[in-house]
Design a protein around this nucleic acid. Structure first.
Lengths: 206, 206, 206, 206
DNA sequence: GATGAATGAGGGTTCATTCAT
DNA sequence: CATGAATGAACCCTCATTCAT
């Protein structure tokens, strides 16, 4: 029978604190551009001191990366949940749910653009991020295989992932349109692209 | 016959100055992340004073936006040039040339991510940017129509544009791989996506 | 026969703890500049918590002062040991051994510079430090008397002590030279100065 | 005939500004420990903004080094002035004047202790400091030669310089005594040491 | 008595922007 | 008009010290 040690409790509390910090950061990211959120903003928002943040994260970037990590996990959870519900046209379903998430969490793809550039991440950080990103790709790949695709499903998964992210970069909050219009339009684009992939997946393409 | 007034000359000189500033900024963007380039860097690079920059641009962001504008124009020129040369598979050709450009000018899609978020641009700025972005879309649309597509070619153009941009956001400088490997991979993805669109365009899809 | 009370045991344990802390600090001082060693560094090195350190020392400075105290004791021990061994030219011998110690423990004279400025020490701290410093002076004085000096031996002792410390302040780690060269040079200076004092001591100077 | 160009004026003004900053720093150093003086203190004291400091110095350390440089120059000027006045016992005179200066400018030897440690200075900084330090040594050397010393006058100069600095490190503001008492005592020590060197210099020592 | 998480003032430094010359 | 020195708010981060457990 699993015993709960004192160390476990400590660890849990630590995780709870990190979660508080990460969630505060997420909340602030939804209010303003993620790069304009400061340590003081987060500390204030979380009701703790700036110094405390540095007890849990060595730098702001490390914290941001954890938000990214957490968001990615959330995406996976949401999509797995959604997929359990429905039947049929799953690539499309995935695409819509994913874009829906990005619409609600605009900082996600902003962080992606921020972290991708060469030299931004240490090897250690890359090793932390890679597996979870691969999970997303794997999840998409499963959908593609489900349709019976015979080609390079990994490649196709990556292509779809890229294409969807691009919708956000290009139209996420396109200036001049109302938020609702934009969300509707990005969903249309997502559906359009998804259909191509759906179609492609059904063929023995590549 | 059009007469050249004193005012015209002034205006031309002004444009020449702005071009000098913009080109200096571009050069610096290719050397380091666009967000880390400072007014002083640009002024120094252009051989003028920081104050002078503010005679031509109200703020750094306005300058950056002009770089974005100029880059977009350059893209259009390059692609029109490329398209004149070749025959055949033009959607693919476009995709490859476009991704090639983004690989060489990493600040372009970084700026895109930077400017897209709501509230970043004034109405005035939007009115300046929109027409040129539309030109890119129109250019893509022409390629799509050339294949004989009967569906919503505008939508398809926008979808392709988004998808290609997404490749860069997602894999532009993917950490851990060499620059060359990344460029190759982004081109593979571009080709893959382009083929879907090529195929889709040939059908009476939508 | 002296009885050992419970209080004595407590006191002994307390002293042992302080020694652990001081020795840890010393070890760290040999690795980096003494002013850059933090409470956390020491606590970690000693395998105790930061809070515990404050049970033994009211402040970091008090701890540093104890290290200084302990170092001074060590110096006395070492020099007494050395002097027992040899005959002859003892002022010189002392000077070389002392400079040798300072070369190995660069934080010692750094702490001296740090604590000497007016206002750095409380009266209480001064009362603790003075006797041990006087011991060093007395030790030097004995050497001077041994040569048969008839002048103000206390003054001469203080002068020699000062002069040797100055070698370290001025050339301890003179930039541009290798560590070995510096150590050799400081020893040359020490010998040079020692000879003056040796000579002076032999006279009925002052 | 030397013409004064616009550039010269600019350069002069720049130097005047640096002097203002340096003098403000010196003033503050006499009020509190030099390491506890902040950029903000200096800016406020000089009636300028913190940012302005960084127009003239790349870092606080660079500024501190300039103060050290300026102090050393001042020492040289003062001593040369003094030496012109008097005849006779010049090594002693020098020693007293030097110690007098250090008593008035306690930050000087504090900075010496601060900058000497290996790695504190860049090669560039070393190249700036070395010549001026050598000037001081040369000045002392001249005094030694004046007495007719035949030995290694450079070494003797360095030894004297070290020995005098050590007086300050060891007794500069020895706690417990009044400022006046300390100054008197350091002068006694200086005289005592100077006499040794005076004596030594007169011989064909070494 | 020991712990170590939390504090928060304060550190050096940056940089878009302004404005007197 | 151009200049570039000056501004100063804001940034990230550190660390001696405290105190609830």
């Amino acid at each position: 029978m699993a015993e709960i040690t004192f160390g476990d409790l400590k660890e849990r509390e630590r995780e709870a604190r990190k979660e508080l910090i990460v969630n505060t950061a997420k909340k602030l990211f939804s209010e303003k551009s993620f790069k304009s959120v400061t340590v003081r903003d987060i500390a204030k928002g979380a009701g703790i001191s700036t110094g405390t943040i540095y007890r849990y994260y060595e730098s702001l970037d490390e914290l941001f990366l954890d938000v990214f990590f957490s968001d990615t996990n959330e995406i996976i959870r949401i999509i797995e949940g959604e997929l359990k519900k429905g039947g049929g046209c799953t690539i499309r379903k995935f695409s819509e749910v994913y874009i829906g998430y990005l619409n609600e969490n605009t900082s996600y793809y902003q962080m992606m653009s921020y972290f991708m550039p060469r030299g931004m991440l240490t090897d250690e950080e890359i090793e932390k991020i890679n597996p979870i990103m691969q999970e997303v790709i794997d999840l998409i790949e499963r959908l593609i295989k489900a349709v019976g695709h015979k080609g390079d499903t990994q490649l196709m998964a990556r292509a779809l992932f890229s294409a969807l992210n691009g919708i956000m970069t290009s139209y996420a909050q396109y200036p001049g349109s109302s938020l609702g219009e934009i969300q509707k339009y990005t969903l249309v684009l997502a559906g359009y692209i998804a259909d191509f992939f759906e179609m492609g997946a059904r063929k023995e393409y590549y």
